[in-house]
Simulated scan of single mutants.
Amino acid sequence: MWSDRSWWPTGSVSRRDVLAATGTAGAVGLTGCTRALSSEEREVNIAGSSTVFPIAEAIASDFVQRNPEVNVSVSQTGSGGGFSNFFCPGMTDLNNASRPIADEERSQCATNGVEPIEFTVGTDALTVVVNPEADWVDCVTIDELREIWRVGGAERWSDVREEWPDEEFELYGADTVSGTFDYFRETVIGEEENHRNDYSATEKDRTIVRGVQGSPYSMGYFGFSYYSENPDSIKALAIDDGEGCIEPTLETAKSGEYRPLSRPLFTYAAKAELADSAVREFLRFFIEQAATDLVSDVGYVPITEEERDENLARLDEAIEDVT
């Protein structure tokens, strides 16, 4: 894995961020820095999903406090951006993803000799949000969401329901490199329509939060964690999939009631990189912590003990192959 960090994407969170937050001495270079690691230092590089980012960030913080000799860098690049630009080219050890790796991404990885190993790290309630001043709406159907977000669909709130305001939508959502975009497009828009492109698209979910906070006629979507950080300044909509309005919560995501927007979250490891003790130690810790309240604390459903044990068995098998 590279020690020249000049290629690392803007917005990364590394041990410098963690140590600054905890008051611990020491740091690692951020974007644009090219300091080589000393012989005593070890490094784990992670890119990918902004949805999974809060889980990885929290686990990395805990890990480096226990293992100060390891530098862990976590960056938000979107699931697809992480796969295509960093993980499959062999530039990162792990890639977080809010949807399964695509066939074309597996092919790209194979071309570069990268074998991805999948691990489930949580469950998300993908959340549709509006401004708290939007007192006319508390629940939407999947058909209404499709009409709002499809190409050639509704332009104004009143286009969806006559009693809603005769005001244009102000829309904020995931960028096309995002796994959240892929999941929303597949689940809400469907195969017969395309996701509209005249909206504010970003890989940074907190940018969506700020956009929705700024306009009473706005709407956005992202992982539940980003709503749970801001429950007083944005409003989550219940979703009616034909069986009544179900609010996004950890409980409804865990039970499967929140359909169809509850989804599994993943991290993928480059199998060859598990020969590096720092990578495999961190990944084992990641898997173990993914089954704890740490995950619910950042707004997602932890994996079950059974899922944890399946992950660990898969990890042990992969490690045995490369060490």
Rank of each mutant, 00 (worst) to 15 (best):
G48Q: 07
A47T: 15
S73A: 15
G82W: 03
I117G: 00
E40K: 15
N95W: 04
C33F: 10
P68G: 12
C88M: 07
E43A: 11
G32I: 13
A110I: 02
A60F: 10
T22D: 09
T31Y: 13
V130I: 15
G23A: 10
E40V: 14
V121M: 04
T34V: 15
T24E: 14
E147H: 08
T120N: 03
P116T: 07
V114F: 04
V137Y: 00
E69T: 11
E69G: 09
S84A: 13
I59Q: 04
V128E: 01
D62E: 15
A134G: 11
G32V: 14
Q65H: 09
G122N: 02
T120P: 00
T22E: 07
V44I: 08
E105A: 09
T123R: 14
L126Y: 01
F83E: 02
E144T: 07
S107C: 02
R99P: 00
S79F: 04
I101T: 12
V114G: 05
T123K: 13
R42K: 15
S49T: 14
V70F: 05
G80H: 06
V128G: 01
V114W: 02
F119V: 09
R99A: 12
E147Y: 08
V52K: 03
A20P: 00
T123Q: 11
A134N: 09
V128H: 00
S75Q: 05
E43P: 01
D93K: 03
R35M: 12
D124A: 10
V72M: 11
C109R: 00
D62P: 02
F63N: 03
D138N: 15
E118P: 13
T51C: 08
V44D: 01
I142F: 02
V121R: 00
V74K: 01
N95P: 08
T34N: 14
F63L: 13
G122F: 04
A58M: 12
A97H: 11
R146S: 05
T127N: 05
E115A: 14
A25F: 06
V52M: 10
V28H: 10
P116D: 08
E147N: 13
V52P: 04
T34W: 08
D62C: 08
V137H: 03
Q65W: 04
I142Y: 00
R35T: 15
V137G: 02
E144A: 04
N131D: 11
Q76K: 15
V74P: 02
A102W: 05
T77Q: 09
F83H: 03
E133I: 02
G78P: 05
I59P: 02
V74M: 08
S61L: 09
S75H: 02
W136G: 05
V64M: 01
G78T: 06
N85I: 01
F63C: 09
N96W: 09
R106V: 12
I101M: 12
